[in-house]
Design a binder for these strands. Structure first.
Lengths: 205, 205
DNA sequence: AATGCGATACAGACCGGTACGTTTGGTCCC
DNA sequence: GGGACCAAACGTACCGGTCTGTATCGCATT
């Protein structure tokens, strides 16, 4: 791997890199399995086997399986906002254009092959206990989503931005869990039409 | 139970009643546990114990645990439409009034103590495999929901009733999964405002 | 140059507990 | 006798997690 250029003083670097590589392999493998089959359906033995890693390694980097699940959601959270920010960056002509872009991007995801819903909502459904690490991450993720929607609503200058944000939150979460009941091609149009309707009403009232 | 009036010829009746009673106790106990803690988190041994029933009885009435889960969802489905119909019955002044009543009723549920989301969506999240009995029931439940929303949209006389139905479906499903991110008191108002906005836009376009 | 240390990784046995489902044996009532 | 029921043991599989033991590293001491 990074063994090709054995410079002097690479010890810490190499160790860190190799170490991170193993942790990374575990997290990636687990993430894919947890998302595809559900966290409860996937045992640590399977993760270890598919990752080509020793069980001891898994438990070196993650205290428990629950922690591994939480780490999965945390990464999903980061990735989600990374994409969100990228979309926002590409549509700076105003809050309405940005909102449309977010809706289109989210709607487009639903149609993807192997799409299985929002990981945060799925894990929250799998782990009802309020204190579960995964549920904590999921809840904070959704709070952040609402916060960002409120930001857009603010910039739209509607009368009750928080109400609009709540409505948009329902819409987006609804899209996440309804991918099976909505034709893939429909999704974007439905989301755009609905969000336009909500914004228009928030403006009008 | 029904032992109080031992008429002649009650044998078959009584047996059927007692039999149904045991089955009923199993299903009720399982339903409550599955809903509260998740189906995967609850073992058949626990169901049996809490129901005060022999394991053999459980497996007499339900071929497998998956079948029991499906039966739970089927009953939830029936109960949901029973309430839906009752609400519809009470608001016959027109499609708009009926839709409002449905939204208010659904929104009101979210705030209830121990509310843990829509059972159909929860089980669908727990069992990703498309052929799983629970998932089959859940999908057909959501199709029926969309069909009924379409019926209301038809009667509202909007231009594209199917589009409006899809939008309302997202809204309702979104409400189901967002109960944690929405204050209990907010829910009804948000649902009503959003559905009004969607209907208004569907009328206008 | 040789030795030993500590960290990292591997494989795999092992632990107690629990999963779903079956089987056996006994009680009660028609 | 037969059917429904209960209680409990059983079987096989897997669960999350720990532990043992071996191997490979670069680095520091000798």
């Amino acid at each position: 791997m990074s063994r090709m250029a054995p410079r002097i003083k690479t010890m810490a670097e190499d160790d860190a890199a190799a170490s991170a590589e193993v942790r990374e392999r575990i997290l990636r493998t687990a993430s894919e399995l947890f998302y595809r089959e559900g966290a409860r359906a996937v045992g640590v033995d399977l993760v270890v086997e598919k990752a080509g890693v020793a069980k001891t390694s898994l438990y070196r980097y993650f205290r428990t399986k629950d922690d591994l699940i939480a780490a999965f959601l945390e990464r999903e959270d980061e990735e989600f906002w990374r994409q969100w920010d990228a979309v926002a960056q590409r549509h700076r002509t105003g809050p309405q254009a940005e909102l449309d872009a977010h809706m289109a991007w989210i709607g487009e995801r639903l149609g993807r092959k192997n799409y299985r819903g929002c990981p945060q909502l799925n894990m929250a459904a799998e782990f009802p206990e309020a204190e579960h690490p995964a549920r904590v991450v999921a809840l904070s993720h959704k709070r952040e989503l609402r916060r960002r929607l409120k930001g857009i609503a603010d910039r739209l200058g509607v009368r009750h931005p928080d109400d609009l944000a709540a409505q948009l939150l329902l819409l987006v979460n609804g899209a996440f869990v309804s991918s099976q009941a909505i034709a893939p091609k429909e999704a974007v149009a439905v989301l755009l039409a609905a969000s336009h309707a909500l914004v228009a009403a928030a403006r009008g009232s």
